[in-house]
């Protein structure tokens, strides 16, 4: 059973990135549960977790959102590589927050980045995931927490 604090740590890691890097806070949409493999957007930053909990946590965002985010960060390179860098940094922040809060219980991987139409997101069959929509400006990304 996931603890509230654990979920909050992941969520804060994500919203904190928007608040600090883009100086515009992101808000949470209505969270829900999902059985089966969640759908992802074009760019996804993944961290895998083992130890007391096993599974993945990832941030997946549409290209349009990342473009606006880069613009807010005064970046003018909107290449594929930069987009990957960006979701990687978000995942990095989530990973850093998790290490700070549960470093002693979790082994947290270095983030990896997935992109493309049908990326192969690791998913354990039968695992229920928490989907937390991250709304920023008019865009919406998703934080997926899939841990057992």
């Amino acid at each position: 059973m996931l603890y509230e604090q654990e979920l909050k740590t992941f969520v804060e890691g994500t919203t904190n990135f928007f608040e600090v890097a883009a100086q515009q806070p992101a808000t949470l949409g209505s969270p829900y549960l999902l059985e089966g493999t969640p759908a992802v957007h074009e760019y996804t930053g993944v961290i895998t977790i083992s130890g007391k909990r096993e599974g993945v946590v990832y941030f997946t965002a549409p290209k349009a959102m990342l473009t606006v985010l880069l613009m807010k960060m005064q970046e003018n390179d909107f290449s594929h590589e930069t987009m990957r860098d960006l979701v990687g940094e978000v995942a990095n922040t989530i990973s850093g927050n998790a290490r700070r809060d549960f470093g002693r219980d979790f082994v947290i991987s270095v983030p990896s980045v997935l992109s493309g139409e049908k990326p192969d997101v690791p998913h354990k069959p039968g695992q229920r995931s928490f989907i937390i929509p991250i709304n920023w400006r008019s865009h919406s990304a998703k934080l997926v927490v899939s841990l057992s």
């Binding site: 600090v20 100086q23 940094e89 990095n92 990973s95 927050n97």
Partner: peptide, 27 residues
Amino acid sequence: ISALADKATAVEAMERGANGFLNKPFT
């Protein structure tokens, strides 16, 4: 300048000779 926020890492970096530590994301 790192997202790794755990203290052992910070201490290790300082011990190797770092002089400051800034957590990502930063303003």
